[in-house]
Nucleic acid binder design. Structure first.
Length: 256
DNA sequence: CGATTTTGACCTGCGC
DNA sequence: GCGCAGGTCAAAATCG
């Protein structure tokens, strides 16, 4: 009968270990949530700054100035870079058995091509926005190489119209969109030394706990230290790519 | 019957 | 110049 206390003791130890493990994972999860929130906020502030810079540049060239004078226009014309449309990537979780490359993002798309690419055995589909005549937006959709249940949609350009409202709300609540990565063009990068990619990691299925966590974080006095840490991490392209892949995997493993 | 998808051909840019 | 790969076109097929 001496064995009985030993068994309960080992059980207690196991329970304690598991509780500690759960706590540790909860902390880790919380930290990752904070990282994602911070990256999102950094992106928004950078985007605002970028738009400001664009406005300043446009005003500077609309009004006749020394640098934009017509005298040396012929010499400078060759150097003028035509701004290419902004490209962004969005990952969608789908059924891996579903062979179609259709994602519900609130817009109507017309498929105009499909190709097998070298780096990925799954075909890449090309779509044009058919919702509004003259809308310049295109998108490419291809299955993720690592996870066939994830569709990678690359959007080019900006819509000149609004999406269907009910599609937007449903796409944001049903958890089909898992992560959005906005890829700015090289010339828009503010720091020439920093990587030429800015990530926009948006958790579409943000729940109440996430919002509360964010609120608590805002009140956190150590916020600046964390932001500095995140800023250093986001300057590492391999980290940002790995983070995006990890987020995609986590949403696939733990569907909401 | 019009809209959409499919798919092979063609175009273009890039590296060698 | 050539070959390759990505992107686009357009005729045929399919769908509602």
């Amino acid at each position: 009968m001496d064995a009985q206390p030993d068994i309960s003791q080992s059980h207690r130890e196991k329970v304690q270990y598991l509780q500690e493990e759960i706590e540790r994972l909860q902390k880790e999860n919380k930290n990752l949530s904070l990282l994602l929130e911070l990256i999102d906020r950094n992106y928004n502030s950078l985007r605002a700054q970028l738009q400001l810079n664009k406005q300043i540049q446009q005003r500077g060239c609309v009004a006749p100035t020394e640098s934009c004078s017509s005298q040396d226009d012929s010499n400078k014309r060759a150097k003028i870079e035509i701004p290419r449309p902004k490209a962004s990537q969005v990952l969608f979780r789908t059924d891996s058995k579903d062979a179609s490359l259709v994602v519900k993002d609130g817009y109507q798309w017309r498929k105009y091509g499909q190709k097998i690419t070298k780096d990925n055995p799954s075909p890449r589909a090309y779509f044009r926005c058919s919702m509004f005549p003259g809308c310049p937006v295109k998108k490419k959709v291809q299955r993720c190489l690592e996870d066939s249940s994830v569709l990678v949609a690359t959007y080019e350009g900006e819509h000149n119209h609004e999406p269907e409202a009910h599609h937007v709300s449903s796409s944001l609540t049903n958890g089909s969109m898992i992560v959005s990565i906005t890829n700015f063009l090289p010339q828009t990068s503010i720091d020439p030394v920093a990587p030429k990619v800015t990530l926009d990691l948006t958790l579409s299925g943000a729940n109440q706990e996430m919002k509360e966590t964010h609120q608590r974080f805002v009140e956190d006095s150590n916020k600046n230290k964390v932001e500095e840490y995140v800023a250093s991490l986001t300057k590492d392209p391999s980290f940002t790519a790995a983070l995006a892949a990890a987020v995609a995997r986590s949403f696939t493993q733990f569907p909401s």
